[in-house]
Amino acid sequence: MKRTARLALMSFLFLATPVAAQDVAPDALVKTVTLEVVELIAKDKEIKAGSRAKLVEVIEAKVLPHFNFGAMTALAMGQHWGKSSPEQKKRLTEEFKTLLVRTYASALAAYSEQKFDFRPLRAKPADTDVTVYVRVLQPGAQPVTIDYSMEKTAAGWKVYDVMVGGVSLVANYRTEFSNTVRASGVDGLIRELQKKNRSLQEKK
């Protein structure tokens, strides 16, 4: 009970005043951001009319700051990360980020007032690497779990992997990346990602 009260207070403070990001607990952060984004989407006329650009804008403003794309890209690259040049790493991260934001927008566009169940955090206060569990409830189907792997950094808690229904995004891209790098090198993968992002840009 005390814990709930504390979390509620934290969420409140987070909403009301610009609290230093590193003071916010990871589960409180996920909850606040999720509810905030969902509310924005529900209210925004342009997004409701199907504006993907506006949706991407919201994600970039509200969600992006809480992700560590460098860590995500490094994990998805696995052994190939170490062999990439700093310039390649920068471009990979940039392209992967663009692709993930678009995919995320696509998933959010399918959102239709499902309810969220924010699970209590199972972690010790000293932990610096935690998983925040969220469940999306929908009638007639087993709840879909969304698990955020988060790491504590100097700039607050940052997400480095998302698992939807137990499917890790990073693990899923790892095989794709590895296949492409083996076939056409790191530059080949960068070209593939650019091509993909361009085709999505044209399509929207």
């Binding site: 692709l99 696509s106 998933a107 794709e176």
Partner: peptide, 8 residues
Amino acid sequence: ILEEAALD
């Protein structure tokens, strides 16, 4: 979403 997210 699969169509958009996947390289292959």
